[in-house]
């Protein structure tokens, strides 16, 4: 039949067109800043994984005789801190803490926040009001105070840092996801699925969530940067990971007392935070542009 042939033709031309269109990754790479961000993030992950191979010294070995050395002195790439520990190695190991806390805390916040957001947005009504007012309350609570309270209750430690920062991330995700779900919920295909007799669980997990994913991913990426800063801030206040474990925030904190004598400690740990956060944000921006529905996903 000719009509079948014609249909086939349309599908073929559509396919040709698809091939011409660029994949998400291509679009990302084309954006130079995003590509830069991606490369830095990649290097950072490599550094964290292979920290023992990259570090030139044991990050926790103290040698007071070699305290506060300058850049490059006696084979210490970035000098030493007040206890004579190699700053370069401490920063390399610190990247582990930053990445673990950044990713784990955001995951924690994303899972709980998204669930709450989906439920609030999808079912609406009283449930929505209760959940979102609670989130508003959480938002209004000063983060540092929240963290201090939690640390006091739970005690210090990596896991507790993750939980504290994770909880602080929950309301943000809940809001983003709820807003997204409110939009997707009104789509005709959701009504279609309801008319087929599907249960809520199926509609939420098969249709609503997958279609809300793009902004969640972008928000999560940006949140990792925020979580890394939060971790540094907590460590700076002495609420973070226990010493002597190296973390960028704690190196910065130690460095602030020796800012005049030896600015290397504060400078290099601060620079690490700066470059990491900047790269993640650049990457996140690029990701958002690439995922923008107006530019075709």
């Amino acid at each position: 039949m000719t009509s079948i042939q014609a249909e086939e033709e349309i599908v073929k031309t559509m396919e040709d067109k698809r091939k011409k269109e660029q994949s998400l990754f291509r679009k990302l790479i084309k954006n130079r800043l995003a590509a830069f961000g991606l490369i830095v993030i990649f290097l950072l992950i490599i550094t964290a994984i292979f920290a023992p191979l990259i570090a030139t010294h044991n990050p926790n070995t103290m040698d007071v005789t070699k305290a506060l050395l300058g850049v490059g002195e006696q084979g210490y790439l970035l000098g030493t801190d007040n206890f004579g520990r190699d700053i370069f190695s401490r920063i390399v190991y610190g990247s582990r803490i930053s990445l673990i806390v950044g990713i784990a805390a955001v995951l924690f916040g994303a899972v709980i926040g998204s669930l709450l957001g989906v439920v609030a947005g999808y079912f609406g009504g009283k449930l929505d009001s209760v959940i979102m007012r609670f989130m508003d309350g959480l938002f209004a609570f000063p983060f540092i105070l929240l963290a201090i309270t939690l640390m006091t209750v739970l005690g210090q430690g990596l896991i507790n840092v993750i939980i504290a920062i994770g909880i602080a991330n929950v309301p943000g995700f809940a809001r983003v996801v709820r807003g997204q779900v409110l939009g997707v919920k009104e789509s005709e295909f959701i009504e279609v699925t309801r008319s087929l007799g599907a249960k809520h669980r199926r509609i939420i997990f098969q249709h609503v969530l997958p279609n809300s994913l793009a902004p969640i991913i972008v928000y999560a990426t940006m949140s990792v940067a925020g979580a890394i800063i939060s971790e540094a801030a907590l460590s700076f206040l002495g609420l973070g990971v226990q010493p002597p474990t190296a973390s960028w925030g704690s190196i910065l904190k130690d460095g602030k007392d020796f800012l005049v004598l030896n600015p290397n400690m504060a400078t290099f740990s601060g620079l690490s935070i700066l470059i990491t956060v900047l790269s993640i944000n650049l990457f996140g921006d690029g990701l958002r542009d690439a995922l923008d529905p107006k530019m075709k996903v």
Binding site: S187, F189, E191, V192, T193, L196, Q206, H207, N211, V297
Partner: peptide, 15 residues
């Protein structure tokens, strides 16, 4: 069963 108006909005784009 039901057939809806908008052929673009009535199909989940991710399936």
């Amino acid at each position: 069963q039901m057939v809806f108006q908008d052929p673009f909005a009535s199909l989940d784009p991710r399936k």
